[in-house]
């Protein structure tokens, strides 16, 4: 098993005709992901290397039974496209787009939660989800990862690759790797994804990679303490980040005394979660906890 994307994934992509959108969609298909359609209102009826393009999400879902959406459209239109996918009944909506206004994310989150409770939003500003050997939805370089028993959830893309690679060098593979994104209002938080890993049979260890800003790591610490039986290893980036500066991600900012890496690491440790001080050490802790993979 794995979480969120797998062999049953039927992926459709908003923004499939764009440069980035087409490149990554075709990469995902080459990996084995079942890509059933794409959306561009101006290019309905055309196709991208055989993938049919539709005018909107309702048509796409009606024609292809897509159950997973990937959003690649530019920031001004991304939240609207994600909402449209939810309205069409898509269950997993993964928003790769970076640069969406916080208020758009806020309204999207609240509207989906109220009107489409069966839809799960991942991202925005995330690298997507990879379930090695099953499906890849997004921009994660799949060649570095193989199937295995470690579930990874992270706010950052490249840091995920770094940690995943450290784990891979120790022989670990992954059930799923989930990027929840670096924005202030992510559709899914650490808690949501950790809950899925806890239920997933294949996952034996959970690695969560956090960073400065907000309190999602602290909430995850509290959740793990009370609801998670599997071992969890943490990593937090941004110990050296100055106060009040946005460190690349819109959500990575220390405000006053809130959102510091130190406070997050302490909260995780207080909940019994061991925290690596470097990506390398994080992988070493994983090794100590569940031993070298067979």
């Amino acid at each position: 098993m794995s979480i969120l994307v797998n062999k049953d994934t039927r992926l459709a992509v908003a923004g499939i005709t764009g440069r980035e959108g087409s490149f990554h969609t075709l990469n995902n298909r080459a990996y084995g992901t079942n890509v059933v359609g794409g959306i561009n209102p101006k290019k309905a009826g055309e196709n991208v290397e055989g993938i049919p393009v539709f005018a909107n999400w309702a048509d796409t879902v009606a024609e292809t039974q897509a159950n997973t959406a990937m959003i690649f459209v530019p920031p001004p239109f991304a939240a609207a496209s994600a909402l449209e996918a939810a309205q069409a009944g898509v269950e997993v909506v993964i928003i790769i787009t970076e640069g969406i206004p916080a208020h758009d994310e806020l309204k999207l989150y609240n509207q989906v939660k109220r009107d489409h409770p069966n839809t799960r939003i991942i991202g925005p500003n995330c690298p997507g989800i990879l379930s090695p050997g099953e499906a890849n939805v997004g921009i994660i370089p799949a060649s570095f990862f193989k199937p295995g028993n470690v579930g990874v959830v992270s706010r950052s893309g490249t840091l995920t690759y770094q940690i995943g690679n450290e784990l891979a060098q120790k022989g670990f593979g992954n059930s799923s790797i989930v990027g929840i994104g670096g924005d202030p209002v992510p559709g899914s938080s650490f808690v949501d994804i950790i809950e899925l890993f806890e239920q997933d049979e294949q996952t034996e260890l959970i690695v969560m990679s956090g960073e400065i800003g907000g309190s999602a790591e602290e909430e995850a610490a509290e959740y793990v303490k009370h609801h998670v039986s599997k071992p969890v290893v943490g990593y937090i980036a941004g110990f050296t980040a100055p106060e009040g500066k946005q460190m690349g991600h819109a959500g990575a900012i220390v405000s006053g005394s809130a959102g510091t890496a130190k406070a997050k690491a302490e909260a995780l440790e207080a909940a019994g979660i061991r925290v690596g001080r470097t990506p390398t050490q994080t992988a070493e802790i994983a090794m100590e906890l569940i031993g070298a993979p067979a």
Partner: peptide, 8 residues
């Protein structure tokens, strides 16, 4: 490359 990796 990537905000998280640079912070790290």
């Amino acid at each position: 490359n990537g905000a998280g990796l640079v912070m790290s």
